[in-house]
Design a protein around this nucleic acid. Structure first.
Lengths: 188, 188
DNA sequence: TAACTTTAATTGACTGACCAATCAAGAACA
DNA sequence: TGTTCTTGATTGGTCAGTCAATTAAAGTTA
């Protein structure tokens, strides 16, 4: 056997580099060469491992979505009556989901989801899981959990969007408070 | 004088074609040649009138923002206590702002705002005007107009985002109802 | 242990295609 | 005639993806 075990390390490095470069450029218009250089290898090696640029973007998107899912799961079931709900919202505004690179990657992956069916499918899975989680959390608390779940999901996305577009960037705490204030109102 | 009056016609055609092509492709990755062909002219003429591809995108963004502003103004002051507020929300979900091409153009212009300072400036103007309009409308109705204006703005954006990302697309009416239900709650 | 084999890892160089922007020249109209 | 309108042709540059060749680790054999 030859030198083994490089593949997972290289792939992880490329995924990190992809997110970093997309975040830095604020656009999917980054070259494979840029990403590969950032990850410390040649462009040819990036192609060797991922086959195509699209596959690299999709792998990066999967990584971000998996991270988000994990960060929600880690906080469940939470404490108290509203534990599940608080956990989900807090996870959505966790620092790592709120760094400039990640949020910038998110908005650009949203754009990717418009044109790449596989990316669209991934995003739909995320939306469904979020809605489902919110429904479970809301059912014991509200008369119309479906409506609140829908509103809450949109609100979280909207706050995200504004966070990355506001010049100084709004703080995670401010964004989170906005959402919690809505929840207090909706559940009262 | 020579053959005159072509400029405004050509520019309008190019702006329409830009929005159409960006919406169709779901991405800013459209070539000047595509846009020009759609507008019925040569790529060279597009450059002649706009100077660069970026300027074409910015002109298209200005056009969309101007349209939105006009559609709000047309509905003001509205009727009744909540007239101003209803007018703004209804304008945000007016059919023309909700067509696939327009919404797709919006999300991509959002992405553009991340990397193009001029685009960012335009978007900030839109955000400020929206917030200001909402404040005026909310001051007589709510104790904390600033918070509700912020939430409402984010909610509108979030609903927009989901509208274009949902496979079948949610109907404008459903989106609008979501926002109005929130308002009813917040103002009660 | 030394020589040999096998195979993953890795890259430099290249290709084929595409594209934004320019320019000089022609067409149309007043 | 003079001005605007219009385009074909060109240029300089970029980039995704390919390929042949090299390197080095791990096992194999004698």
């Amino acid at each position: 056997m030859p030198k083994i075990g490089a593949e997972p390390i290289r792939k992880a490095a490329l995924i990190n580099a992809t997110i970093f470069e997309v975040g830095r450029a604020g656009s999917l218009d980054v070259t494979v060469a840029q990403i590969a250089r950032r990850a410390g290898m040649s462009p040819a090696l990036a192609h060797h491992y991922f086959g195509s640029k699209d596959q690299m973007f999709l792998a990066a998107m999967r990584y971000i979505l998996r991270n988000y899912g994990r960060s929600v799961a880690d906080r469940l079931p939470g404490h108290g009556k509203r534990g599940r709900l608080d956990a989900i919202v807090q996870a959505s505004f966790a620092p790592q989901n709120f760094q400039r690179e990640t949020v910038s990657a998110w908005i650009n992956f949203y754009a990717l989801a418009l044109i790449n069916p596989e990316a669209g499918r991934l995003l739909r899975v995320y939306h469904c899981r979020l809605r489902s989680n919110l429904m479970v959390a809301l059912r014991p608390l509200a008369a119309d959990p479906a409506r609140i779940a829908e509103t809450l999901g949109a609100l979280i996305d909207g706050v995200y969007l504004r966070a990355v577009l506001t010049p100084g960037g709004i703080h995670a705490a401010v964004a989170e408070k906005l959402v919690f204030d809505y929840l207090d109102e909706a559940l009262s």
